[in-house]
Amino acid sequence: MTAKRILIIDDEEDIREVAQLTLEAVGGWEVLTAESGMEGIQLAEVEKPNAILLDVMMPDMDGIATFEKLRTNPETQGIPVILLTAKVQSSDRQRFAELGVKGLIAKPFNPMVLNDQLTDILGW
C-alpha cells in the first residue's frame, strides 16, 4: 500500500490536532481533518482517504448521520469508518456494529496507541 491516508472528522480542534500529530509522527499517516460532518463528507468525496476516524457527538450533523450519508454516497461508501466516541457500552457497540461501522476507539484515547488501534481495526 502506498501512503496511508486518514480523514479525522471531529468538532474539537484539540482532538484533531493530537490525533493528527500522533498518526503522522508514529504511524506515517497522511492526515486530513474536518471540523464538521458536512465538511468531512465533502473532503472524503474529493480526497478518497483509506479510512475515516469519525467523532460521534458533534453539533449540527452528528457522527451517525455523517456515517449514514457517507454510506449512501457512491464516492465514499467503501471507505472504512472508525467511530471515536465516549459511548462504548455493549449496547452502543452492538448498534454501531449493526450499522456497519468498522470499529470503535474510546474517548479519551491514548495518543501513543492510536496508530496501533487503527491498524488493528483495519487489519493492516
Rank of each mutant, 00 (worst) to 15 (best):
R93E: 15
Q117I: 05
F96E: 08
Q89R: 13
T2D: 10
G28S: 11
L53S: 10
L99E: 13
R95Q: 15
G40W: 05
Q89E: 15
M61E: 05
I105Q: 08
E47N: 06
N110Y: 07
K87C: 11
R71P: 07
L83E: 08
D60Q: 07
E30Q: 07
D14A: 01
T22D: 06
E24A: 02
L43V: 13
E13M: 03
R5G: 02
G37A: 06
I121G: 12
S90W: 10
G100A: 08
G123T: 11
I9D: 01
D120K: 13
K87R: 15
N50V: 05
V88M: 09
F109H: 02
K4T: 03
A44M: 12
N110H: 08
L7T: 09
R95H: 14
D120I: 08
S91N: 13
V101M: 10
K87S: 13
K107L: 01
V56F: 03
Q42S: 14
G28H: 07
W124F: 14
E24W: 01
K69E: 15
A51Y: 06
Q89A: 15
P108T: 04
V46Y: 11
P74R: 04
V88W: 06
I8P: 01
V46Q: 15
K107C: 00
N73R: 09
D14F: 00
M112K: 14
E75H: 10
E17M: 06
V56L: 12
Q20F: 01
K4Y: 03
R93D: 09
V18Q: 04
R71M: 15
G37S: 06
G100I: 08
E47G: 01
A97D: 13
Q94P: 02
W124P: 05
G63V: 01
V113D: 04
L54N: 06
E39W: 00
I9E: 01
E13F: 02
R71E: 14
A34T: 01
K107T: 00
N50R: 09
A44E: 12
I15G: 01
E45T: 10
